[in-house]
């Protein structure tokens, strides 16, 4: 009698003791979890190869502004910032696009571009770091990779055989090119999802604080653009600048992050960009 009761109680306890209920219990050992996908070395290689193709396409539209000194300067800042972000396996590259439009782009795999027009509107190093940090965020949070579900192709011979039996069509190549097209569309036409943009803004503030820059860098830059009425030029692929400024203000208040005028490095910025 005692035994039966014990078993019954154990069974009940056992069935009900789980604190977290995640529908993830269906996932079998052969399936990668949300947290594991996109992260194998092959996936990252696929991401870099993809990013290069996408970058080549961006550069086909806006060629590089080939000033070695300034390019080196933004790489020093960008790579420094990247150290404080969470993707040590990515080799970041920062380039300047030769166009007067005001914009910045990032491609998966670590390729980040800022336009000459954008640099002209920036007044100090913290603002530049803020813009670069926002782009680094898209890469760290894998916004494009997740949106297009970019994974390394599974090239084991067994898969080829299985795909033959199971009737899947299309080769990795055709799929790859479609992905590049889709990513280009996100960058130049559709824009990132609004949550992804806000999320990258918040990331930028955090990254600025961690790396020792004035956390107000990005918001200051956006405010100035708004006041100068330069909004139209970037609106297409970013959510409204006013919403972004408000979102950033709220975020910094909630997180008790305050500005630090001492960490703007304005003089170095003027010096390196040849401004007087």
């Amino acid at each position: 009698m005692g035994l039966k009761r014990f078993i019954l109680i154990s069974l009940i306890l056992f069935l009900f003791t789980n604190i977290t209920y995640s529908s993830d219990f269906r996932r079998r050992a052969s399936q990668a979890s949300e947290e594991e996908i996109y992260k194998t070395e092959d996936d990252i290689k696929a991401e870099v190869i993809f990013g290069r193709s996408l970058s080549a396409r961006i550069l086909g539209r806006y060629p590089l502004y080939k000033d070695k000194d300034i390019t080196e300067y933004i790489n020093l800042i960008g790579k420094g910032l990247a150290q404080y972000a969470g993707r040590p396996e990515i080799e970041f590259h920062f380039g300047i696009l030769d166009t007067d439009t005001i914009n910045a782009f990032s491609a998966p795999g670590g390729y980040i571009f800022i336009t000459k027009g954008c640099l002209k509107e920036i007044e100090d190093e913290a603002e530049l770091a803020g813009v670069l940090a926002h782009e680094i965020a898209h890469i760290v949070e894998r916004h494009i990779v997740k949106e297009i579900n970019l994974r390394a192709p599974d090239e084991s011979p067994l898969t080829g055989f299985a795909s033959l039996i199971a009737g899947a069509t299309g080769t990795a190549e055709a799929v790859f090119t479609t992905f590049v097209d889709k990513a280009y569309e996100i960058l130049f036409e559709r824009g990132y999802k609004i949550e992804d943009e806000f999320s990258s803004d918040r990331f930028s503030v955090n990254l600025l604080k961690l790396s020792g820059y004035d956390p107000y860098g990005l918001i200051r830059f956006l405010k100035r653009l708004n006041e100068k009425g330069k909004v139209k030029e970037i609106k297409g692929t970013h959510p409204g600048i006013v919403e972004r400024i408000q979102g950033l203000k709220r975020f910094m208040e909630e997180n008790q992050i305050s500005g630090d005028d001492k960490k703007t490095r304005k003089e170095r910025f003027y010096e390196k960009t040849g401004r007087k």
Binding site: A32, R151, L158
Partner: peptide, 9 residues
Amino acid sequence: TYFTKNSSL
């Protein structure tokens, strides 16, 4: 069943 990343046999 044998599994690879995207397939099973």
